[in-house]
Design a protein around this nucleic acid. Structure first.
Lengths: 176, 176
DNA sequence: TATTGTTATACTCTATAACTATA
DNA sequence: TATAGTTATAGAGTATAACAATA
């Protein structure tokens, strides 16, 4: 829990002779570790890296996995619905879908009753890949849950949900 | 805590007549909300947006604020030390520093005993801006702490630290 | 030879404006 | 007029390779 980081030479250099330097060998993060945003960033990076390792064989990033999951749970859903549910802009969702379609994991079916829109489905390959991904992601989640302890995971999800709700709803702080 | 999202017309459209559509009006996120990575992403986005609003007058992003804080806590520190401590690549730290220097918030002083490196300092303007930023960020943190409840913030920081440590240290899951 | 800072570059994620074809 | 999907584009954040000056 020390806020001090050793930066000199990655542990290879001898114990530093210049103690009166303008640039100290030991630096402090100060109050940074007590900032929620900073801690969130570090955790997010670490968790996403672990996710990446977990599904490395399948070549899936978190966003792609989320889309496959949504299409499995909501077959025939429209593209803009998936994008909105996942917090992705419609415009950025296009290349994401293109990539999955090019790999023949999802299919776009033009709707007859509204020929502007598509119904999205998993292909057989997509369903099969999702199944393997779900198993890998379950192991990834179990690994994290183990580190969080018995009541840790639900407690964390509850705290994160409060952050999401509060920070989202908070109006501009200086103009009320 | 419902996993169901209403996407049709953002609440403006009449109650949807086509109930037998291929694309249902109500879609489910399925198991996604129980994924730690997904919850982390939502919380991070919300918290960073709140941070942005909190320091909007000062035109500071989280990374820039972190650098100012580091230079205040560790005056004379070298650029690569700051970058490493914050988890930023040296190469990406250059334009970040350039921006702060262009605004006359930080100064690079060439070190005499090692003329490859710079000692970094806050300027007077930088110190003054940091002071205002710290006040704004403190209000931002208090707002979040209020939402998390009495023991919520330390509990959250503890859980996030466990995630950071575990996910970072975990070796590749399929090759042991 | 190794390190500090740097340039150039590329890839991902995100954001806005504007187009098309439909409604 | 409005909506679903799309294109083009631009801005951040992040990644690697390679260079000059210095150690």
């Amino acid at each position: 829990m020390s806020d001090v980081i050793e930066t000199r030479g990655s542990g290879k250099a001898p114990a530093a002779k210049g103690k009166r330097n303008a640039a100290p060998a030991e630096i402090s993060l100060g109050t940074l570790p007590s900032h929620i945003g900073f801690a969130l960033r570090l955790a997010q990076i670490a968790v996403f890296q672990d996710f990446h390792r977990a599904v490395a064989d399948l070549d899936l990033r978190p966003g792609q996995y989320s889309v496959l999951l949504m299409l499995h749970t909501n077959p025939g859903i429209r593209a803009s619905q998936v994008a909105e549910a996942l917090g992705i802009k419609r415009t950025n969702f296009v290349p994401l879908l293109d990539g999955l379609e090019a790999r023949d994991l999802v299919a776009r079916d033009r709707l007859e009753r509204d020929r502007r829109a598509f119904a999205l489905f998993l292909t057989e390959d997509g369903a099969a890949l999702l199944q393997r991904a779900e198993a890998a992601v379950a192991r990834h989640e179990q690994r994290l849950a183990l580190a969080l302890g018995e009541a840790g995971k639900p407690a964390l999800l509850e705290l994160l949900a409060r952050l999401t709700a509060t920070a989202r709803d908070t109006p501009s702080p200086h103009r009320e």
